[in-house]
């Protein structure tokens, strides 16, 4: 078993939290993991990505080869497209539809959505609104993770347990909120993919 995942977003959007949740769950499932992160200058509002690799066998490279990713998981629509060369022929693109606009020449959202819809396997959802319904817009990253959970080879309960562990110190409210965000993301994605 292997899951090679590109996590994409803009510095500060919380992609490393997604990585931490998956990472915790993966290690608890007895899987090997490698996760390359971006620190430093790009974190100041630039494009950031993380290569997350899970496998039942030892993993060699910290970087996912081009054309081999099983999934691109993006908390920003334009950023989801930046990593298409990594996506494998059977890979899924799962993205937030809400743009993060901090550049003057951000392309029209409809055009971005057209590009996303060209992909045979994609899930696009408004994670910000769904997170808001769950209790806080800040949990948009966890909504995206919930959507991705359909395609991950780790049990859903493992992700829930990871959220309980990682957010536990910050209070029960935050745990509940994130569990709800995770559930919402998963259910919304399930409805979208079964049509």
């Amino acid at each position: 078993m292997k899951n090679d995942i590109i996590l994409a977003g803009v510095g500060g959007q919380g992609i490393l939290s997604i990585a931490a949740i998956i990472g915790y769950a993966a290690v608890n499932s007895g899987l090997y993991l490698k996760q390359a992160e971006v620190h430093g200058m790009s974190q100041r509002g630039g494009d950031v990505q993380s290569h997350l690799r899970l496998s039942s066998d030892q993993i060699a490279s910290d970087l996912i080869p081009y054309g081999k990713a099983d999934m691109i998981l993006s908390v920003e629509p334009m950023e989801s497209l930046r990593y298409l060369p990594y996506l494998g022929p059977e890979g899924w693109l799962i993205t937030n539809t809400e743009p993060f606009i901090n550049i003057p020449n951000y392309p029209p959202l409809e055009e971005i959505m057209q590009e996303i819809k060209k992909l045979p396997r994609h899930v696009a959802l408004d994670a910000g609104s769904l997170a808001e319904e769950a209790g806080s817009k800040k949990a948009a990253n966890v909504v995206i993770l919930g959507a991705a959970s359909l395609f991950l080879d780790i049990p859903y309960e493992g992700l829930e347990e990871a959220i309980r562990f990682l957010f536990g110190k910050k209070g029960d409210d935050l745990v509940e909120l994130n569990l709800k965000a995770l559930r919402t993301g998963r259910e919304t994605a399930a409805n979208k993919t079964v049509k």
Partner: peptide
């Protein structure tokens, strides 16, 4: 090396700021 999917032209640079 397999031919890779292209990055759509509309994807613009997002430098740190």
């Amino acid at each position: 090396q397999e031919k890779l999917a292209a990055i759509p032209d509309l994807v613009t640079r997002r430098p740190p700021s």
